[in-house]
Nucleic acid binder design. Structure first.
Lengths: 248, 248
DNA sequence: AAGTGGTCTAGACCACATG
DNA sequence: ATGTGGTCTAGACCACTTC
């Protein structure tokens, strides 16, 4: 530990900014196992005096490692090497139920509703759902958790023609639709990456700016009509989507 | 503009940290169109005096918006509202050629080799490629660009049994393999999100910490043998992968 | 009560871009 | 030459956790 934070080599010219040098040192210590998951780092002030850097510079190095998921900070408690999160693998080309998926893995499932209500549709919803001037949109938003860890935020929108009362949805939206005789047969998903904003980061219990996987799904009825439009945000560190390719 | 950076309302109690208040203000100005793409913001020092905040605090607000892709900073030049990047949509369940893909869209394609060489395999490569003790790994790394914008970093690994001399690959790896009678028929991709590290961020010409889409692909020969293992890193702001779901 | 991370300040120097 | 963002410092107070 004394070695890790010794002021030596911080005067090297051409080694780049000081915060990057420190960041690299810590990252290497983690990669090599000299810092193991769960280990605590010295307090920021202590690292500063040990390295001869200012606390602001130490913080900048630490922040980058928090963003990349290698460190975790807890206010009032300390800075720790992150535990490896076993990535959950999920097939992308099958529409699977979150609940069944997790139970098959022997994990607990919790789902916290953020809202279930009817709103005037946003322009995005009008586009995606093909709504008319007087149509209204039912919105369902929830946080999906497993074993106490939040994994994803799901925000679904439907025309009230298909779901007049969103309050009736307890667990499975598709279950409720099925009971009403509505069965999507095709869906298209679009996947991209984005840094989480303050709100979403808080809901997923990660630092602001952490990378998240954004998935937008549009589901279609056999008639070709759009029935549902869902935007999900997955924790990038906890999820892994798998796709099998057909090669011609 | 005077309005945007007026010190009013920065004394509101209960509105959260100052940098978040400023961040929110700027984000709203962009969303509402009062700040249009390409517009320049005042210099950091000027924003600081206008708002009555310190430069460090202004920087923290700006940094977050740079991370989320809403602002762009150019050293020596200024801070600007980012131009909307039209997201490139790509089908995930087809193995498409980057070159053909872009040309079909009427875009130029450039590919910059970072390295083409033979190495001792890393543990990861041994695992993925199923290498033996004496096998060596051919590595190909390049940055894919289109219209002058870097879009992705591709790092491919193969056993030298399949590709003894990586230097022969000029544009298409699959083309070279095909010429050698090697034709993958199945591939599995795993997708997740990650914050870009200093090196990768530089190669993709974005700020460190920006969200990237990480795709790992393993391709198989008809015999079931693994022929290739590729790790790609796409700019999260410029790419969008599409998958169609089969619903049973 | 003591220690931790979170926020904030005022001021400084450097490297780079543009006129 | 001037202005810009990039880095860095020393010191301060707050909110929270832990003892």
């Amino acid at each position: 530990m004394n070695l890790l934070f010794s002021p030596q080599r911080f005067d090297d010219p051409g080694a780049g900014p000081l915060y990057l040098q420190l960041q690299r040192r810590i990252a290497e210590a983690i990669a090599s196992g000299r810092l193991a998951p769960g280990d605590s780092l010295p307090a920021e002030r202590d690292m500063a005096t040990m390295t001869g850097l200012s606390r602001v510079t130490v913080r900048k190095a630490v922040q980058a490692l928090v963003l990349s998921g290698q460190l975790v900070q807890r206010r009032g408690s300390g800075t720790f090497v992150a535990h490896k999160v076993e990535k959950l693998e999920q097939a992308l080309s099958l529409l699977t139920s979150f609940t069944e998926d997790m139970q098959r893995r022997g994990r607990t499932v919790e789902s916290v509703w953020l809202s279930r209500a009817v709103h005037s549709p946003s322009p995005e919803e009008v586009m995606a759902l093909g709504l008319g001037a007087d149509d209204r949109a039912a919105r369902l938003a929830r946080v999906r958790r497993s074993d106490g860890i939040p994994l994803a935020i799901e925000r679904a929108s439907l025309s009230t023609a298909f779901l007049p009362d969103p309050e009736v949805v307890e667990t499975s939206l598709y279950g409720v639709l099925e009971a009403r005789g509505l069965r999507p047969t095709r869906a298209v998903q679009r996947i991209s990456a984005a840094n989480l904003g303050p709100r979403d980061a808080e809901l997923l219990e990660v630092a602001e700016g952490v990378a998240g996987l954004k998935i937008e799904r549009v589901s279609y009825l056999p008639s070709g009509q759009v029935i549902e439009f869902t935007r999900s945000l997955y924790r990038g560190d906890a999820y892994d989507f798998a796709v099998e390719l057909k090669l011609t």
